[in-house]
Design a protein around this nucleic acid. Structure first.
Length: 588
RNA sequence: GCACAUGUAGCUCAGUGGAUAGAGCGUUCGCCUCCGGAGCGAAAGGUCAAGAGUUCGAAUCUCUCCAUGUGCACCA
């Protein structure tokens, strides 16, 4: 289904061509002067130069071609050369009716379906999620859903940090605390227990304690390194402990991600990439792209077209160990083998941009991925406090994600119970849904690449451009539709009115932008565009709601038109929040 | 030092070549016999950091410059 803009553009293209002008000037856009018109074309001004004519003369000629078109309520040329268009109510109503019956409301990407890997989450085993993980999870989940909606096959991978010194630290700390465990008995020959020797609470306490000890106790640090090495060389006892750490940790992380309504198709980690490292590094050497520099093995990534100097990528440390870049590259080797992606999308803090530039270039240079494979790094900014500095707890520590969620749920709970009577259980359940929406919308409504200020009061507010305001609008529509059904109404076979009031028409004009907005959000990986859009629709709906009595309308046919309109408004809003991974309660 | 990013209303943010730069919050003033007022309408508030250039037209593109943030090989 062509968008309204495309349909109007086609008419203008024909008109430009009929007057002897290049069709490329017929580009139509939504008006930026809604007081004057609904759509506009500025091509006459651009064409003026090529054809050595006054812009308004060109505009006049083009407009003359279209004056009789019934789809336009008005089309006129305005100095210096704007073409201003107002569509007819019948045309718009017809479009909305068709759109309501079209799959995805007419959204199409125009691309062939792709196979996409989205790498987001980035949680570390044995460490609780903190606010730094919020953006990756929230933005990544939305990107994943948008990609999927666009018809692509998408695999979301959490890519756990599950391999490294932290594991050796935990093993040694555990040895100090519980030396009686069979893992530490060198003569132990039996099967290791299936039960983990610690709970998640203990694990979360063991890791920071071990990490702190390493900073002051060199002997302990040496032991941790040794244990890490043993684990990496397949020692059965260390491996058994590592498996316990992973099981306990994964279960807890899953629970926390579930609370965020964020899910992953794969729970792979850095450890899964390890088997691919030796052959991969050897292939770098064999291909002659890796060389030794200051004891380390590096790959140059500088390209002739670069204006700045880029440092080479280290693929093996001088002590022979692998590192971050090696692991990410080996992960690509595995993904190529298992998933054959056309597109990779990585979400990480924007400070990691250089790292991903290096890794992407090595991957292309070494032929790990195909030359045409699209490698995208989506760097996001920091979540700051009101002081403009990275968000911290009151005592200055790192805020755990679950505490942040609890805080915002409390704020929302208070507002719900202040304004409405609702039994406690429902209020709590509702606060959880609305609180999460407040948190996510607050994050997603900003451009991902920029830092943003987290303000719990503002995000949890029910007024303005917030998650709760959007949900409130949807809930209100649901309430009206429920009453309509209670009164014997039927939602089937409804069509919007072909003659509209001003606010009715502006709501429809907002609705028909859906396909363009989603396409833009998809092309630019920009969920914030969807946020802007649902805010626009919510405002348009509230304007319509304010001056239209829907249930009290005596003209049954007109009323059906209203019901049709708010039904599709609801459907579009629900589809949009689905793409943002935001849920809506029945009441609030 | 080099590189990249950001700078738009008191605050938080939209706006990647078009007309008079938009929202929300906050401030001020209106509107509840009414489908959920958690709403709606209106007012005040801006040399788009600064300067130059390209263009019929610039917050948007180019250059210069100021401020802030971030990154510059064996952490992840």
């Amino acid at each position: 289904m062509k968008t309204v803009i495309e349909q109007i553009s086609e008419k203008l293209e024909a008109a430009f061509a009929a007057c002897g002008y290049d069709q490329k000037y017929a580009k139509v856009s939504v008006s930026n002067r809604p007081d004057l018109c609904e759509f506009q074309c500025n091509g006459a001004m651009a064409a003026a130069k090529e054809y050595h004519k006054a812009p308004f003369m060109i505009a006049d000629e083009v407009v003359a071609q279209l004056k009789q078109d019934e789809d336009f309520a008005s089309i006129e040329s305005v100095k210096p050369g704007f073409i201003n268009i107002i569509v007819s109510g019948a045309y718009l109503a017809d479009y909305v009716n068709t759109m309501a019956r079209t799959e995805k409301f007419g959204f199409e990407t125009g691309d062939a379906p792709k196979n996409v890997v989205v790498d987001y989450g980035g949680a570390n085993a044995a460490k609780p999620l903190h606010v730094g993980h919020l953006r990756s999870a929230v933005i990544g989940e939305s990107i994943k859903r948008i990609e999927r909606y666009a018809g692509n096959t998408v695999t979301g991978d959490v890519h756990l940090g599950d391999w490294g010194l932290q594991m050796g630290q935990i093993i040694e700390e555990l040895r100090d605390r519980k030396p009686e465990l069979p893992y530490f008995d060198e003569n132990f020959k039996g099967e290791y227990p299936t039960e983990a020797p610690f709970t998640i609470a203990e694990l979360e306490e063991i890791y920071p304690a071990a990490s702190a000890k390493c900073k002051t106790d060199d002997a302990f640090l040496a032991r941790a390194h040794a244990a890490t090495l043993k684990l990496q060389s397949g020692d059965p006892a260390c491996t058994a402990i590592w498996k316990h750490i992973m099981n306990v940790s994964k279960a807890d992380l899953k629970k926390n991600y579930d609370n965020l309504n964020v899910t992953f198709d794969l729970w792979k980690g850095e450890s899964d990439a390890q088997p691919y490292i030796p052959d991969m590094v050897q292939s770098f050497v064999d291909q002659g792209i890796a060389y030794e520099s200051q004891g380390a093995l590096v790959v140059d990534i500088q390209e002739d077209t670069d204006t700045k100097e880029l440092p080479p990528c280290i693929v093996r440390k001088s002590d022979g160990a692998a590192l971050y870049a090696t692991s990410d590259l080996a992960t690509m080797v595995e993904r190529e083998k298992l998933l054959h992606p056309d597109t990779y999308i990585y979400l990480a803090d924007k400070r990691q941009e250089l790292h991903f530039t290096q890794v992407f270039r090595v991957a292309k240079k070494a032929g790990i991925v195909k030359p045409e494979t699209q490698m995208t790094f989506l760097g996001f900014g920091t979540m700051n406090g009101k002081d403009g500095k990275p968000f911290k707890t009151r005592s200055g520590g790192v805020m755990r994600l679950e505490h942040l969620i609890a805080d915002i749920n409390d704020a929302v709970y208070k507002k719900i119970t202040e304004n409405r009577t609702m039994d406690e259980e429902e209020a709590k359940k509702t606060a959880k849904i609305v609180g999460l929406a407040a948190l996510k919308y607050g994050d997603l409504s900003n451009q991902a690449s920029k830092d943003y200020v987290f303000d719990i009061e503002r995000f949890a507010s029910f007024e303005g451009n917030t998650g709760p305001y959007i949900l409130y609008t949807i809930v209100r529509i649901k309430s009206i539709l429920n009453k309509y059904i209670e009164n014997g109404g039927d939602l089937k076979e409804l069509r919007v009115n072909s003659e509209q009031s001003a606010s009715e028409k502006s709501l429809e004009l907002a609705l028909v932008k859906f396909a363009e907005v989603i396409r833009a959000a998809y092309k630019d990986n920009a969920p914030h565009r969807i946020c802007q859009y649902i805010y626009e629709i919510s405002n348009a709906f509230n304007g319509f709601y304010h001056d239209t009595k829907i249930l009290a309308e005596s003209d049954a046919s007109k009323q059906k038109g209203y019901i049709a309109l708010i039904s599709i408004t609801k459907a579009i809003l629900e589809q949009c929040i689905e793409l943002l991974a935001i849920e809506c309660p029945e009441r609030m």
